[in-house]
Each structure stands twice: as C-alpha cells, then as structure tokens.
Simulated assay, not measured.
Amino acid sequence: MELTQVTIHGLLTQLGAGKGYMYLPGDVDPQSLTDLLAARFGAPRTLVLDGFTDPTVDDSRGAALLVPFEDRAVTIRAWAYGGQWVGTGTARDGEEIERPVLVVARRETPELPAFAPGEDVDWMDRLIRITGWTEPPPRPDAALAEVESRLGTALPGDYKSMVATFGEGAFDAFLTLNPEPWASLREDGLLIWAGTEHEDVHCWRVEGDDPDRWPVVVRSFDGEDDLTFDCRTAEFVCRILTDAHHPFTMARCFDTHWFMNYGGND
C-alpha cells in the first residue's frame, strides 16, 4: 500500500466519524504512517510502547483507542481532533501476528460549569478543560523570562501560562499560539501573540505599565481593520472557542475543542 495523505484520508473516511479500527497490510511502515498523521494532526501522545500501556492513560487521554485490541496492542500513538481520537501503531491480530493498525474512537470533554456575569473566573483552568489538555507543561518559566528580556517588556501573565502549559501549536488547528510574541507591528503599539489561517493577527495594544490590562486587538489580514476587546488573553481564547455569537467564533466549526501541539511532549 502506498502511503499518502490522500490514502490516509480515505482510510479515515472508511472508519467513519464514530469508532472503528482496521488492520493494515504488512507492507505498511508504521513509522511512515505515524509521520503522515503527525503532519496532519500535530505531535502524538504515546499510549502503548513495546506492549506496555502508559498507566496514566484514561478516557481523557485516548483510552478508548485501546478497547478493540484488549491486551494485543504493541505500540499505539494517539491524536485528539475535535470530537474524535485517532490512533495508529501496531497490534497483534487473531493469529498473534503483529500488524500495522489504524483506529478511531469518540472523544468527549467534560461539560463546563456555568458562571454568572461578573463572576471571577479562572480562564486558564477553563481553557484547559475546554481543550481536554492533559499533557505536561512543555515550556519552562526561564524560557519565557528570556523572551521578556529580548522584547524589553513584561508580558501578560495568562499568556505566559498558556505558552508554558500548551507550548507551540494551534487551538482547533486554526488559531496558532506564538511561543514568542512578534514585534513586527510595534510601531503601531501592537505585539502579536497569535494568528489564524485567514491571516488575521491577534495582538495586544501595549499601553500602560500593567501587561495584564493590555486589551486584545484583532487586526484583519488586509491591515485595514482593528477590533479591540477589553479582556485578557485566556478569556478571549475561551470565548472564541465556545461563544457562537463572538465575531471571531470557532464554535460553529467544532463542538469539542483541542490543542494541536507542534513540538510534542514524549
């Protein structure tokens, strides 16, 4: 079987949006399959390695992918994508022959508690729960201190928490979080902390001595329009992920949200 992104798309379509699995021909290279999926979905998490299952694997980390194989999984790596888990690796079939596999399973994130207007909300905690993020922090605080030194300014605390928690990657494979803000709009008083596939840039307007009070500004791809939001960074991301009425909403595309990590934590 020749492995291409078109092949992968066809196989995933065969499995469907719910749950399913398939053993692949023996000439399929499991590493090549993993690499193609990583190019599509970001860095994987390892569920099973050399026949040993990570003891921390649970429903929030893709445990549903292991159900079809019982104790026959040899190596399984997994990705979150919207309301789905996608996994690949190798497992022993009914004749105890180790073969490449592709598997999908339903993915759900816990329902978020409602909050009253004006209530003090931990937006970083909410963002972690929205995305179902369970990976260890990939970015040390010292690296962020170096970033602040290079930029010559402190940065908003919740942005630093986001980078330290998630690392480099994109929310819903759409909103890319910059691990270091871009200063290309500094003459306009803006620092760019994220961007989208539509080439809009998400910035802060640098005003005053308290970075935690900098408003979020979205500049359109043509540079002609700026929209200002009087909220902090993590709150802004939470709202565009879940509020269908937000002007930059992503809630109309996915009911279940995730963070696609570009670097990996294995």
Rank of each mutant, 00 (worst) to 15 (best):
W193L: 14
W193Y: 12
A194M: 03
A194F: 09
G195V: 03
G195E: 13
G195N: 13
G195H: 11
G195I: 02
T196H: 10
T196I: 03
T196S: 15
T196A: 13
T196E: 15
E197F: 13
E197Y: 10
H198I: 04
H198Y: 10
H198D: 15
E199H: 13
E199W: 11
E199F: 14
E199G: 07
D200G: 05
D200M: 03
D200C: 05
V201H: 12
V201C: 11
V201Q: 13
V201R: 12
V201E: 14
V201A: 13
V201T: 15
H202F: 11
H202A: 08
H202S: 07
C203G: 08
C203H: 04
C203N: 11
C203I: 11
C203M: 04
C203L: 06
W204C: 08
R205E: 14
R205L: 13
R205G: 10
R205S: 13
V206E: 06
E207N: 02
E207H: 03
G208Q: 00
G208F: 00
G208I: 00
D209F: 00
D209Y: 00
D209T: 04
D209W: 00
D209H: 00
D209S: 06
D210Y: 01
D210H: 02
D210C: 03
P211S: 03
P211Q: 02
P211H: 02
P211T: 01
P211Y: 00
D212N: 02
D212E: 01
D212A: 00
R213L: 04
R213G: 04
R213T: 15
R213F: 02
R213M: 05
R213S: 05
W214Y: 01
W214L: 00
W214P: 01
W214F: 02
W214K: 00
W214R: 00
W214G: 01
P215L: 07
P215G: 06
V216E: 01
V217W: 01
V217P: 07
V218K: 05
V218I: 04
V218G: 06
R219V: 05
R219P: 04
R219C: 04
R219K: 08
R219G: 05
S220R: 05
S220H: 05
S220K: 06
F221R: 15
D222W: 11
D222S: 11
D222E: 14
G223E: 03
G223A: 02
G223N: 03
G223R: 02
G223W: 03
G223Q: 03
E224W: 09
E224M: 14
E224H: 10
E224Q: 14
D225Y: 07
D226Q: 12
D226A: 11
D226G: 08
D226V: 05
D226F: 03
D226S: 10
L227P: 06
L227Q: 15
L227V: 13
L227A: 15
L227N: 13
L227T: 15
T228Y: 11
T228G: 10
T228R: 15
T228N: 09
F229S: 07
F229N: 09
F229E: 07
F229L: 03
D230W: 12
D230V: 08
D230C: 08
D230N: 13
D230F: 13
D230S: 10
C231M: 15
T233D: 12
T233Y: 09
